[in-house]
Simulated scan of single mutants.
Amino acid sequence: MSTHFMGEGNIGSDPEVKMFSSNGNQPPRGVMRLNVRFDNPVPTDTGNVDKGGFWANVEIWHRDVEQWAQLYQKGMRVMVSGRMVLDEWQDNEGNSRSQFKVQAVRIGILPFRVAQVVLEPAQGQQTPRQPPSQQGAYSKSAGPDGEWDNPVSTDSDSLG
């Protein structure tokens, strides 16, 4: 049993990652698990009030989850899209247990509670080369005002 799910919430704990070795001709892949509290905001005269949110385990499968886990942290606001599935198992005493979880397709980081984002090349990778500027392309000026330069082309009859 599953159903489409899309929700916004806060991560409650740091991500957990588990990697699995390659299987035949498939590359290795892993799973990243997050515990997220999804809220139920209800608009009122004084603003939104949370009316009965819920906690859910969220998991996403991909070969790059080890790198992704470095981006996500406790307290971060995320938008999760995927499907809600019923997870069933036996506990140590042999009792049947079940719980809903979200199998995510996308986990987007929302700009709330993010102080800064710094992008650096991964270790062992070189910075990508800049493509050569093309005729007619606009480029950002390096001047203090940050104004846009005219196209690279020198034709005086560009609109004529």
Rank of each mutant, 00 (worst) to 15 (best):
G94C: 00
W68C: 13
L71T: 14
R106C: 07
K51W: 02
P15Y: 03
E8A: 10
M76K: 12
F112D: 15
N35S: 15
W148A: 11
G24N: 06
M6I: 13
V58R: 01
G9E: 01
Q116E: 13
W55F: 12
I11Y: 00
P132K: 08
A115S: 11
V36W: 14
V117D: 04
W55Y: 14
D149I: 06
S2A: 10
N25F: 12
D157K: 12
S13Y: 05
N25K: 09
N57P: 05
L110H: 09
D64C: 11
E16S: 08
V58L: 05
V114R: 11
G136M: 08
G108F: 03
F54H: 13
V117K: 13
D50A: 05
Q134A: 06
N23T: 06
N40A: 09
M76N: 13
N25L: 03
N92A: 07
P15E: 07
R106I: 04
S158T: 07
Q116A: 11
M32I: 14
K18N: 05
G9I: 03
M76C: 04
Q90E: 08
N57E: 04
G24D: 11
W55S: 12
Q103P: 02
A115G: 13
G94V: 09
S96C: 05
N57M: 12
A137P: 06
G7D: 00
S139A: 13
Q125G: 13
N40K: 10
S2V: 05
A122V: 15
Q73T: 11
V105H: 02
K140V: 15
L71K: 07
L110Y: 00
E120W: 03
N48L: 14
P41F: 03
S158G: 02
V49K: 08
E147H: 10
S133P: 12
F100M: 05
L110K: 11
P15N: 07
G124Q: 13
V58G: 04
Q67S: 14
S21T: 10
D157G: 07
A115R: 15
V78E: 08
D145R: 08
